[in-house]
């Protein structure tokens, strides 16, 4: 368009008959059109690339939201984080092509996980984050990378508890704000006696001290605590009842709509199960307990 206008309005120099039939002009004009078209295409390609930049599949560095208060799963120790979730995050990041030095962990809480993903403060959330239909309306989930179950931990000496119904009349730990006790008491209708504690670590300590009979929440969290108790050498490690009564699919939270990122993370998880990575990680963090872990890949949620 610009070329056409200037060709028309520019003052011509002199009326040489030879120049009337100049050969040079048409190819140049053609080149101009090709250039214009090229520029347009490039602009289009840039648009696509920009959209891709924000996908976790193509980032050079990642900030991962994790828990900091769950021994064996996600715990802040000294200056760093450690636990099963942390190792899973490291493996996923490595498979996404992010070197360890570009990986940062940031503490997230139950209430802040969704909003921190949305605002971009964290790129991924790996924090025993159960996939639920309600959360799926706000967050895209890769995985689950593990399906935890609500299970029961009892002292090693106990032989009376075989499933959740046997908790009737037993002193069961109740952590305010957690859904685990209500699930036993209200949903399963088992009349367990509540004994309050400030957190699941405190529950296990209280049980070791004989002040309660059982602790019930996600098996991985219990296993982390039991492994910790065994390491600390506080008597015989507690026993898993291994009678799960809920599914807690732990997903990796990603900004809503990042399908490329979700697919890439799913691929990473698949690889971790196809090799020995997952088996090794589960053995590393929970192998010292009597929890029966699943070492086959979970059924994914799907990214859309």
């Amino acid at each position: 368009m610009g070329a056409a206008r200037s060709a028309r309005s520019r003052p011509a120099r002199s009326g040489s008959a030879r120049s009337v039939r100049r050969r040079g002009a048409p190819p140049r004009a053609g080149a101009g059109a090709v250039l214009a078209a090229g520029a347009l295409l490039a602009a289009g390609a840039c648009g696509v690339a920009d959209a891709g930049e924000s996908s976790v599949a193509r980032k050079d560095s990642l900030v991962v939201g994790v828990n900091s208060d769950q021994p064996g799963v996600g715990q802040r120790v000294g200056g760093g984080h450690q636990g099963f979730d942390i190792d899973v995050a490291k493996e996923v990041a490595r498979r996404l092509g992010v070197p360890p030095e570009n990986l940062t962990f940031k503490q997230v809480g139950y209430a802040t996980r969704d909003s921190m993903l949305r605002s971009g403060k964290v790129d991924l959330v790996v924090a025993s984050y159960s996939i639920t239909p309600e959360r799926k309306t706000r967050v895209t989930f890769a995985g689950p990378y593990y399906v935890a179950h609500q299970d029961i931990l009892v002292p090693a000496s106990d032989t009376s508890v075989k499933d959740v119904h046997d908790l009737k009349g037993k002193r069961l730990c109740k952590v305010p704000g957690s859904v685990s006790f209500p699930r036993v008491h209200d949903e399963k209708g088992v009349a367990a006696l509540p004994v309050e504690a400030g957190g699941y670590a405190a529950c296990v300590a209280e049980m070791s001290a004989g002040r309660m009979d059982a602790v019930s929440t996600d098996d991985l969290i219990l296993a982390g605590l039991a492994a910790q108790a065994a390491k600390d050498g506080r008597g015989r490690p507690p026993r898993f009842v291994n009678a799960p009564f809920s599914d807690e699919p732990y997903g990796i939270g990603i900004r809503k709509g990042d399908l490329d990122g979700c697919e890439a993370v799913n691929k990473a998880i698949t690889e971790m199960y196809q090799g020995s990575t997952m088996r090794d990680l589960l053995a590393k963090w929970f192998g010292d307990t009597t929890l029966k872990v699943t070492t086959t890949v979970p059924q994914f949620e799907g990214c859309d």
Binding site: S6, A7, A12, S16, S19, V20, R21, R22, G24, A25
Partner: peptide, 12 residues
């Protein structure tokens, strides 16, 4: 590089 004649412009 621009054409200087009427015919040149028409051709361009």
């Amino acid at each position: 590089t621009l054409p200087r004649t009427v015919a040149g412009r028409v051709r361009t």
